[in-house]
Nucleic acid binder design. Structure first.
Lengths: 186, 186
DNA sequence: AATAAACTGGGACACCCGTACCACTTCTGG
DNA sequence: CCAGAAGTGGTACGGGTGTCCCAGTTTATT
């Protein structure tokens, strides 16, 4: 039988190929949104035959889910790195730097998680990770409601900036007053 | 030439048919998400032949855009009605009542607006409308940063509840402390 | 060295898509 | 009343999709 690993290939080359497909999927997701992540496009981007995608991933949904998970982890790492260097006030500047399309892809999948239980836990991972970053930056326990609440405004400001392309200085101003309010409550 | 109205048909029946197609599109959007809104599905749902969709709408994008606009207006009206009756504290209860799929459809299109300039102004209309509702409930001018900021946390809590299906009492608790904080700042 | 398993890649299947076409009927303004 | 515009609906086209199949090749195990 033509076996299907679907998880971790036993051979080295297979593992590399699988990873390659995954990053290709992430790239396509950021470029064209989630409709652009098709088997054929992914395979072509990775320089592999079409069948490789169905061989290493049982379905398009699984491929999308893993791409989402990878995207979440890398974005989380990026943001964490940024805040430990520049603090929460510097987040507005990261907004200016960040790859807008990448963020769009992430949010697309985030919302899509509402209709796909398999993605839901990844969505929660994203939210929890972001709250954690805010809490750490504030030297608060991860469960502190103040961190949670501050994150909610950061999140919306971020999303609005990405989607509606609101002027950066408005976002920055709102962010700083939100930070001031949070410190008053501390 | 077989003309194409694309905006407002001159005949009564045509106007009814167009509206019918639009609500069919909104329904499909809420049920199956954005990918479910196809010409064929919309036509079938409305009980009209396939060609009716291309006759009354120049493209699928236009159909989607108008469906989005309609969805935004009705949701805005619903929320406004709710808050004038129950105040902002009652929003958590509306969350329990609200049609989850409908909200998912709205957010799908909202994020999609990030890649489609035609949708972007509708997305802004959504945000501005929500901020306006919050400001009115607080008896603040629509431009008051406090209303704007309070809306940001409401928005994220709402979205998280819809997408991640977080427990309602957590959302409710966070919402009430957010409202308290806002009143302290007033 | 041989047997089984993993992997490869080309092709095919069945389906759904947006849109265009066009003969036809109904309506409406002059 | 009647030309021309508006509306109607069946059909077709070209293309992209996810998934499956299978003969062949490489790798790992006995």
């Amino acid at each position: 039988m033509t076996g299907n690993p679907q998880d971790t290939p036993t051979q080295e080359r297979g593992r590399r190929r699988r990873a390659h497909l995954l990053t290709a999927a992430v790239d396509l997701l950021t470029e064209g949104g989630f409709a652009a992540v098709t088997h054929r496009a992914v395979a072509q981007r990775a320089g592999l035959p079409l069948a490789a995608t169905t061989y290493y991933f049982t379905s398009r949904d699984q491929l999308l889910a893993e791409a989402f998970a990878q995207l979440v982890e890398t974005e989380l790492a990026t943001t964490r790195h940024w805040t430990t260097r520049h603090g929460l006030t510097g987040l507005a500047d990261q907004l200016a730097t960040a790859d807008r399309n990448r963020q769009l892809g992430l949010w697309e999948l985030y919302v899509h998680a509402g209709r796909d239980p398999a993605l839901q836990q990844i969505a929660r991972r994203w939210t929890d990770g972001c709250v954690r970053i805010v809490a750490d930056a504030l030297d608060l326990p991860a469960t502190d409601p103040r961190a949670r609440l501050l994150y909610t405004t950061i999140s919306t400001l971020w999303l609005e900036h990405i989607v509606e392309q609101r002027p950066l200085h408005d976002t920055r101003a709102l962010l700083t007053t939100a930070l001031e309010n949070a410190s008053h409550l501390a």
